[in-house]
Design a protein around this nucleic acid. Structure first.
Lengths: 331, 331
DNA sequence: CTGAAAGCGCTTACAG
DNA sequence: CTGAAAGCGCTTACAG
């Protein structure tokens, strides 16, 4: 029934063959302590011969640390998190850490992660990207270091941008593209159970709306899903040749869909519409989308620093706010 | 320096408080054996009170199985693998299994996975999607059940489609769209170290080229990366209003980029070009792309079956070939 | 520099 | 139905 692990050599096998104690084998494997060059070599040779590899469970159990860390993301299949993942992994592996991703793409994943027996509770630390921690763990988050990426909660370390300001800047950009017949649109994202929605989009929305208000304008507000299809379908609804549309899409993914529709139907920037978005994913450049760039790599780097600063004994809660950059292109 | 786990209650703590042996606690936690309803309840209550959760490392070490499985994918940030991930997770969690993703987005990840000490070697089984197993593990794959998804190797269980046939069908479709001034293009993907490239694209390419040849045609062949940007940039190079272009893009992701360029520059299907692709990602529908649908969900389901069939004692190697479906849309 | 021994937190025969 | 004990494969003081 169950898989046979007996075929794998253990530290004992290595020790016996090398004529040393298991402690010595352990030492050379962890290249710790002082082991004579001679026995070190011999042990390594045997390790090689036997194809030995340490059992991580035993190691973690014994040493009380797993050298692994969790990354919770809303979804796989999204370049944003691929970017964050890569950047984090790069930093973490410098320190010998492994990272395990927990995508929360559906309710199933969410339920799993809430169970105390879940894998996530066995890792040394938890990075959470773009998600509201309350939503995930209710009032009962894992009892280990938590670092928030692209979201904010004063109770935890975080690296994020000023999303209110993002909204403000988006408004300013569009305001300056304004014509007599301009209509303003805010295309944003809101989760179903919105009591738990991450404040990221909320803040972008507020910054945008309040800035427009100050200028005597009021946008049409539409909520949709974070993907191309939604953007495309939405564009069909709002596109109009009679009016000049000024659109703030709070995520590139949605904007790509909108743009695809506009392109397909020959709506031209400045003429029929102007649009600004957030993220600056690779495709933005190619398609000529004006957007506000998020410093994802830097976020990952800072988040890692935060984590290791904690590991090294620093218990203060730190919130790091990173700068964004307006990237003006055709739209 | 290291995290203090002493704060976590252990099975001993529970046992003591409940006035039972640890074996009993273990039994109720695994809802195995017969435990009297009375003590079961008491133990569960204490578990709750203490906020106890079992240590997975200890459990795995002791029971010799981790109830976890690996999924190796070429990349996160790609809807294809998000789909496969979700489908697999759904199936696996029915059986109480956890899945850990290993995206191989860069050389770093690849190196890690090759080390015998890596996490992947601690899981009970390995699913590999769209990748060539030789490339990843050289001649030294993990010594546990391996199931290939969307690729083929006679030495391992696999679920895949007939990629040669995919190429044939793409050719047939385009051939029937042919005009006097038609130019054929094959836009495909090839890895740098091509001795290890998965045969998926190779087969699509061959099926396409050979079918055209039979009809006295020869396509222009261009290799590029698997993403939108590449497709977009490529389109710039090959687009021409003077000729009618017949394009087989071997992946939707690339086709999206091409399509975006065509739309932006007012090239119309049937008129200026026709295009067929592979995958049928959600965006294909919305943008009107003709494509050959891959049955990703079914693949995941079959792959899970293969795995559990092995767990239940069936040691035969099985290769399952799934049907694809031509989805004709505007292009 | 090295080994014997205790211990990490579980599961699982074994005996009752 | 239940408990004491062995054992999973490591690491880490401790003693030499």
């Amino acid at each position: 029934m169950s898989i046979n692990y007996n075929s794998y050599p253990t530290i004992k096998d290595v020790a016996k063959k090398a004529n040393v104690g298991i402690a010595t084998v352990s030492r050379v494997l962890n290249n710790s302590e002082k082991v004579s060059e001679k026995t070190r070599k011999r042990v390594l040779q045997i390790v090689e011969d036997l194809g030995y590899s340490p059992n991580l469970h035993a190691r973690s159990l014994s040493s009380k640390k797993g050298n692994s860390v969790s990354l919770v993301v809303p979804s796989i299949g999204n370049e944003v998190y691929a970017t964050i993942y890569s950047a984090l992994e790069k930093e973490l592996s410098k320190k010998g850490y492994r990272m395990i991703v927990f995508p929360l793409m559906d309710n199933l994943s969410l339920q799993k992660i809430k169970q105390k027996t879940d894998l996530i509770y066995q890792t040394d630390g938890v990075f959470i990207a773009s998600l509201c921690i309350n939503k995930i763990f209710k009032d009962n988050p894992p009892n280990k270091k938590i670092v928030l990426i692209d979201s904010f909660d004063e109770r935890f370390d975080s690296v994020h941008i000023d999303n209110f300001e993002v909204g403000v800047n988006a408004a300013k950009y569009l305001l300056q593209k304004q014509k007599d017949d301009s209509d303003f649109f805010l295309i944003s994202y809101k989760e179903v159970q919105d009591e738990f929605t991450s404040t990221v989009f909320e803040n972008r929305d507020r910054g945008f709306v309040e800035t427009l208000e100050k200028n005597g304008k009021k946008p049409n507000i539409i909520y949709t899903d974070l993907n191309w299809d939604s953007g495309f379908k939405l564009a069909k609804r709002i596109a109009s040749k009679k009016k000049h549309n000024l659109i703030f899409s709070t995520a590139d993914k949605i904007a790509f869909g909108l743009k695809a529709f506009f392109d397909q139907n020959i709506y031209t920037p400045d003429e029929d519409y102007n649009m600004i978005s957030v993220d600056d994913l690779p495709f933005s450049k190619v398609t000529g989308l004006t957007t506000i760039r998020q410093p994802f790599e830097k976020m990952a780097k800072e988040a890692t620093n935060l984590y290791f600063s904690y590991i090294e004994g620093n218990e203060d809660i730190k919130n790091i706010k990173l700068k964004t950059k307006l990237i003006i292109r055709e739209t």
